[in-house]
Simulated scan of single mutants.
Amino acid sequence: MGEPVVLVPGGLTGWLSWILHQERLAARYRAIRVQPIHNELGSAGVPGDPEYTAVTERESLRLTLDALGLERPHLVGWSGGGKSALELAMEYPTRLRSLTLVEPAAYWILEQLGDSLDEVAQANTLVHRLFGREVTDDDLAEFLQVAGFVPSADRATSHPNWERWLGHRMALSWQGEAVDHPHRTVKELTNVTCPTLLTKGAQTSPWLKRVVDVLGDRLTDATVTEFDGDHAHHIERIDAFLTALEAHMAHVDGPAHAGTL
């Protein structure tokens, strides 16, 4: 069946975003899609819980790995899923065989470094305003613009994915302060010791790229790769992304890393 690779989705549509990747990886890996709590309950229309934190996300992911008997999987996370994957790697550095982060939403890193980007403040203001309440169509359109999925909010409804996004909009109600600001310091990034692949889109927003570049500079064993596309470049350029991902995982499983696993 091959080595396990666990796919953690972003904060809106959840594990649906990894279906094609799972199908194509399944021939060589034990490919597993996981559904975070906020995706599951948010997509069911449940508003965000005030007790939901970054620790909740991290520990639910760890418990899922435990329940599946996965001691050292390859872990791949996109956006919000990348943020929780990074959190798990910092807390439990020996649990992962490799880490792949697709434009992780770890904006707290930029804030701690004093990168007071207007876009980060705008994104945080928006998602924190949505926490615990009903998310409207206008809220969703604004989020899609800020996240770089559409060029402007007024064009969101004409996007081919609008109807799919609309059905999952309540997942945005779960992204509060306690989720976006884990009790971490930038120095703790050195806790991440497994080989890490970081990816970004050439057309994505500069502030999203900045998170990737900072992580590339500060993680112990990191490689940064850019693909044509935006925040969803791993879907838009799935062939190129999977080629890079499989090369990364194969390199980790090769002789060069045999003594470190």
Rank of each mutant, 00 (worst) to 15 (best):
G201P: 09
E163C: 02
C194V: 15
G69S: 07
L208M: 15
S79L: 01
D230K: 05
V192T: 13
E103P: 01
L25Q: 05
T196H: 08
A247N: 06
D239F: 02
W18C: 04
D154I: 06
V5R: 00
Q203E: 15
R28Y: 07
S79W: 02
F131M: 07
H231Q: 12
P206R: 10
L245E: 00
T204A: 03
W174N: 04
G254V: 01
A44V: 12
G77F: 00
E163F: 11
L126F: 01
G148K: 06
H234G: 06
V135K: 03
L113S: 05
A85R: 01
G42I: 13
G77Y: 00
A106N: 04
G114Q: 05
D217Y: 12
P151I: 08
R184V: 11
K187I: 08
P206Y: 13
G216D: 06
R28S: 12
D49L: 05
L130F: 08
H168P: 03
V34G: 08
G254D: 15
L189C: 10
R62L: 13
R129Y: 04
H231S: 10
L172A: 08
A44F: 13
T157Y: 04
L261F: 01
D118E: 12
D217I: 05
A232I: 11
G10I: 07
V211G: 01
L198E: 07
E91L: 01
G14V: 05
K187N: 13
H168C: 15
T53H: 09
N124K: 08
V34R: 05
M170S: 10
V55F: 10
E111W: 01
F131G: 00
N39A: 02
V179M: 13
A27H: 13
D228T: 13
T190L: 11
W18E: 05
V186T: 15
S98A: 04
D253S: 12
M1E: 11
A67G: 09
S43K: 14
A240T: 02
L245Y: 01
S152G: 03
Q112H: 15
G11T: 10
G132I: 05
G45C: 06
W174V: 09
L208T: 14
A244F: 00
T260I: 02
L144C: 09
E103D: 06
L117Q: 14
V76G: 00
A89I: 01
E111M: 02
D138H: 10
E134Q: 12
A121K: 07
L12P: 02
A67T: 13
T125Q: 08
H21G: 04
G14M: 04
D230T: 10
N124P: 00
W15L: 10
G82K: 00
A54M: 07
R97T: 03
A26G: 04
L20K: 14
E163N: 10
T94R: 09
L12V: 15
E236H: 06
D139A: 03
G254T: 03
N161C: 06
Q175R: 11
E177L: 14
H234F: 15
L144M: 14
A202W: 12
T196G: 07
A85D: 02
D154T: 12
R58T: 14
G229T: 02
V127F: 03
